[in-house]
Design a protein around this nucleic acid. Structure first.
Lengths: 165, 165
DNA sequence: AGTAGATAATCTAACTGCAAGATCATCTTT
DNA sequence: AAAGATGATCTTGCAGTTAGATTATCTACT
């Protein structure tokens, strides 16, 4: 390793990417053999939070493709953590409910993931952690509310085509 | 869409994931035909920042696998944005330098990506944006400094194997 | 009523991106 | 000079994701 210390970039994209990489790595280690890993956990968590939701609602809430949701639910169901039930008002849709095992495991998982978050933000004070969480949450809630980014406000960078022509 | 409003989770992982999804979507739109998209931009940016760095140094700094770096550099080189040059002190390694076109384009790209960041954080005030950037940067710099997460401090969740057995 | 279009879930098939392993040249250490 | 480590590259294979078609059901319009 030569002595060229690369400067820490002020790039938000770099920071976001690195933080996510780290988070996924830690979480994968923590979750071990949980079916579908982090996504499995998030599905369980969402099912517990919003009862009576269809698979599609959960998928869009988590930003997951609808075709993946099938396999995700399959995995969690065969592991005995949740069940598909007929939707009360729409016979096309399925409602997901946690099994007793799923409920119990979710409790453990939430504590485990809280550990991961704490480890990820080990550099920050308690107050700073809350601030980071709150700011990031506001950004993400807004992002999730606008699923289709209407490109009108943000056109492509014109110089690219021009200089690559 | 039924009326089951899913509660906004207080989950840092959810927020991180959604923010990154959004960022990548906006950036992809913005960067258009730039070879390798966001990663291409980040490589260009890093090459400009740290002169004389080897490919491997850049890859580890960006969290990219070394085997991918080859193709990334290939794409950017054939697009005429940078060049491989022999490393001054290590004949195994290559040094990357931007071409004139690469320099010019990078200027445009930096402005374009600043727009993306602003758009992503549209909900936040100027001060809050700086705070978010700073906190996230501290977390990520620490994460990048500890590349191999020694699992000693963070063991796997024991309840998983137990309840899935 | 009845018909046309939209929607929820699923399946198939294909594509993309990423990663592990081997290879070659070169550096470092002994 | 020999042995092991390292930078870059290539090959191969897998995992994760997406597009398209299918079926059943719902909604809206005539």
């Amino acid at each position: 390793m030569t002595a060229h210390a690369l400067p820490d970039p002020a790039d938000l994209g770099w920071a976001l990417g690195r933080a996510v990489q780290r988070y996924q790595d830690l979480a994968a280690r923590k979750l071990g053999a949980l079916p579908s890993g982090i996504r499995g956990f998030r599905v369980l968590s969402t099912v517990a939070a919003g009862s009576g939701c269809s698979q599609l609602e959960i998928a869009t809430h988590l930003g997951i493709d609808r075709t993946q949701m099938t396999y995700l639910v399959d995995d969690l169901a065969t592991a005995g953590l949740l069940e598909r039930q007929p939707h009360p008002t729409d016979r096309r849709a399925r409602t997901l409910v946690l099994t007793a095992t799923g409920e119990e495991l979710l409790g453990h998982l939430e504590r485990a993931m809280a550990e991961v978050e704490g480890y990820l933000m080990a550099e920050l004070s308690a107050g700073e952690r809350d601030t980071l969480r709150a700011l990031l949450l506001r950004v993400s809630v807004a992002a999730a509310a606008e699923p289709a980014p209407n490109g009108d406000a943000l056109g492509p960078c014109a110089a690219i085509e021009q200089l690559l022509g």
